[in-house]
Computed example of a mutant assay.
Amino acid sequence: MSPRTQATKQKLFDATLRLAGAKGMVGLTVDEIAASAGVAKGTVYYNFGSKDGLVDALLRYGVDLLATRLHSADEVEDLVDECLGFFADYPAFAQLLVSELWRTPGQWHGTLTLLRDDIISIIKQHVQRLADADRLPSGVQVSTASAALFGTLLVVALDWQVFQPQRTRAEVRESVMMLVRGLGPNS
């Protein structure tokens, strides 16, 4: 992909997130996205085929960015910090992700299922280490704990950004880590 094409797509992603954060995806038009990005309406269709194609690509792009950050984490605390940092950097993406993940059946359900599975698999590696160290309560499945941690991080990050912006990322991370540490008998 040429640098110019990538720059155009980035402008469209940024505009879509800005608008989605301000008014939500429902009712958001290609005209509004193009105008906000400073491009012609045809540019959206040329690059993505449709608004749905744009949102699908945006979801994939955002989850790829999140996955890259999570892969850099060595410990659960690093994973929590990276996830919170990502959602602090991209709060509108967090809003979009939450609204689309729990809208059933959503327009992008297939894409989100694959993307969710990607993120959960990264988290699962860390949670498996906790399980291997006997830090998960008896009977708690690693897959359930992994999904719970991701859901917790997503909702906590949104709550932090919307209702408690005065809190620092370190304070929020420590609150989540208190929950994680409290999971098992060896906490």
Rank of each mutant, 00 (worst) to 15 (best):
V127K: 10
V30K: 08
G27N: 13
A40H: 15
T5G: 01
V162H: 03
R116I: 04
V63D: 02
F163W: 07
G184F: 10
G139D: 05
F48V: 00
L130T: 09
L28Y: 11
L58S: 01
A15N: 06
V80T: 03
I33A: 01
V63G: 01
P3G: 02
T43I: 05
G182K: 12
W102G: 06
L179C: 12
L114E: 11
L19F: 13
S99H: 13
L179S: 12
V172C: 01
L66W: 02
A148I: 08
E32S: 14
L12F: 06
F87Y: 11
W108S: 02
T168I: 10
S138E: 11
T5H: 06
H109A: 10
G53W: 05
R129M: 11
S36R: 14
D52M: 01
T8M: 04
K41L: 14
P105A: 04
H126M: 09
I122W: 02
D78N: 10
S121F: 08
G27D: 14
E75D: 11
K23Q: 15
T144W: 14
T29K: 06
A15K: 03
H109Y: 13
D74Y: 09
L130F: 11
E100L: 04
R18H: 14
L58H: 01
G151E: 08
L12W: 02
N186V: 15
P137V: 14
A131V: 09
S175P: 03
Y45C: 00
D159P: 01
T29A: 07
Q95N: 14
F87L: 05
G151Y: 07
S121R: 14
Q10A: 08
A145G: 12
A145D: 11
A170R: 04
G42M: 08
V44M: 00
L149A: 03
V76F: 06
H126K: 10
I33E: 01
G184N: 08
D118H: 12
A7L: 14
A131N: 11
R169P: 03
E174M: 01
G182P: 12
K11I: 15
L179D: 08
T113G: 07
V98W: 08
L97K: 05
G151A: 03
E171F: 03
S72G: 13
V180M: 10
M25W: 11
L130W: 09
V76G: 02
E82P: 00
K23C: 15
R18W: 13
F150G: 05
V156D: 00
A92E: 15
T43A: 03
F163G: 02
A88P: 05
A40Q: 15
R4D: 05
D78C: 09
L70F: 12
A22E: 15
K124Y: 14
V127C: 11
A157I: 07
D117V: 09
R173F: 07
R135V: 04
G139E: 06
G62P: 03
G184L: 08
L149N: 03
R135G: 04
D56R: 00
D14G: 07
V55D: 00
I33M: 02
L59V: 05
L136Q: 06
R169D: 01
T8I: 13
L183I: 15
G85Q: 05
G182L: 12
A147N: 08
G27Q: 15
L96G: 02
V63M: 03
A22H: 10
A7W: 10
S2M: 07
E77C: 04
N47G: 04
A88H: 12
P137T: 13
A22N: 09
A148D: 07
G184P: 10
E100C: 01
H126V: 14
